[in-house]
Design a protein around this nucleic acid. Structure first.
Lengths: 269, 269
DNA sequence: GAGTGGTCTAGACCACCTC
DNA sequence: AGGTGGTCTAGACCACTCC
């Protein structure tokens, strides 16, 4: 019976690895610094590369790391807040709005949006694509669905698509009285087409914000926005919240007390 | 020459698999139904189990599947909306509130929260744990941090911890005039302690909602809530949004047009 | 071309649940 | 005991970036 704590459930290796790496990130690395490559890290910790990658994936999910194929793994800057309630109850496309309008076409919306609009499936609407830039990088894409009951089919002022057409739809939309907005946020994974725009691989986690614009007692438009989950923190309301803030983990991280033995240094040794 | 579309970038197998499975889920399976096990599915699609698992992970992330060790993989019900702005500008702990109060103690808050409160690191506050139940299952855990400037150290009415003490803190808090709330939402991964409460493995994705309660011109309390990202859709405002809604993917899924050949049936053959 | 991360394989063992 | 998903390994090849 000389054995000690055999009843402790073994923590998965990748989980333990994650916390070790996380601490090393705090203490040994600056934002933007590049980590040793995966094969080297795996060897240094004595695990298979797949296991090491499982830990890195977690840290990337939490916004601590950024990995780019052909380049390497770097320490990510803290997430920046992006205000989701722009212009306080304003229509999209108004002056102070952080989005830039892209192409527009006439399509049948996805089933979920049709339901929100109270449409039969297949009924065509204006769909306007927009992109949101912050610090020179795209952080979100959006498709705005505007039913013909809000903005009638345009008098073919533009050839059929293009940003000018999108702006025209938004201009017409702004003539309505906006009574309110309702939003939902959920987790999703980026589709192939948005992936390129957001500079992520397909399947990367995103926060999907669905906004219903209410006017004349009904849903006058629906916006579906796709935010990069790794780099963004969504803010609601005119938050005066300062910059450092959250760590991305489950709530703000514990202060760096009572952590592990494993004294592996990562930087040049 | 005779070659066709050699320039098409090969879609990753797991990505293609995901869409095939997703379609099969739509057409062949009912909510709650159990899928064939991973080894069988992998064999049926002619891929390694690890590859199949990559596809299943995606689908679980999008809330389409639910996997439980020792049991199997089942088709998940659509995400349900949980209102994040409860009681319209009310303090936590008021009557209609969906949370049940848990233990409370006196601790130093994590660094991020200390910053929001304008505290030096290490300054102790009340921290009240709460749990949110929906449909009999826990969907979120929360820690509410209440500085002594809002609610002074309690007169040791309770032994030091326990739900009664937590309720006492909330009761005192409600005496203040609430001027506003500010929220942020970001992606995180569940820590070991919350994992058990939420019935998830450590590292599962969660939506972390940070709420600043404003009173007397300052931040009178900070709540950090951790919602299961697989089963929840956060709603803001008194949303009348109906139930079916989003698919969890990047915006509502395309209607099931123009999809793949690969006619693998999944159900009993 | 050299080096990086991304994908994929075929196997093994483990923790957990149910019967 | 038998079956499930969860972890881990040691390799291979590919796509991408940069020099």
């Amino acid at each position: 019976m000389g054995t000690t704590q055999l009843d402790t459930v073994p923590e998965p290796k990748y989980w333990h690895l994650k916390t070790v790496l996380s601490d090393a990130l705090d203490s040994e690395f600056a934002v933007g610094e590049i980590l040793p490559n995966e094969r080297e890290l795996a060897a240094r910790f004595g695990v298979a590369r797949a296991t090491l990658r499982q830990a890195l994936e977690q840290l990337e999910l939490e916004g601590r790391l950024q990995r780019r194929r052909g380049v390497g793994t770097t320490v990510a800057p803290p997430r920046f807040g992006v205000d989701v309630v722009q212009g306080e109850q304003g229509w999209p496309g108004t002056p102070d709005d952080a989005w830039q309008t892209g192409e527009s076409e006439e399509t049948a919306p996805p089933a979920g949006v049709a339901a929100l609009l109270g449409h039969e499936q297949g009924e065509p609407v204006h769909s306007v694509r927009r992109t949101r830039m912050t610090h020179g990088q795209p952080v979100a894409t959006e498709v705005l669905y505007v039913p013909h009951s809000s903005v009638p089919a345009l008098p073919a002022a533009e050839p059929g698509a293009g940003a000018a057409r999108g702006r025209a739809v938004l201009r017409e939309l702004q003539r309505l009285d906006l009574e309110g907005q309702e939003r939902t946020v959920e987790l999703g994974s980026v589709r192939a087409d948005d992936a390129r725009q957001l500079d992520r691989l397909p399947g990367a986690p995103v926060l999907v914000v669905t906004t219903c614009y209410i006017a004349q007692g009904t849903t006058a438009a629906v916006g579906v926005s796709t935010y990069r989950a790794d780099t963004c923190r969504l803010t609601f309301g005119d938050s005066k919240v300062p910059e450092p803030l959250m760590t991305g983990a489950d709530g703000p991280a514990e202060p760096a007390h009572r952590r592990h033995r494993a004294g592996a240094r990562l930087s040049r040794r």
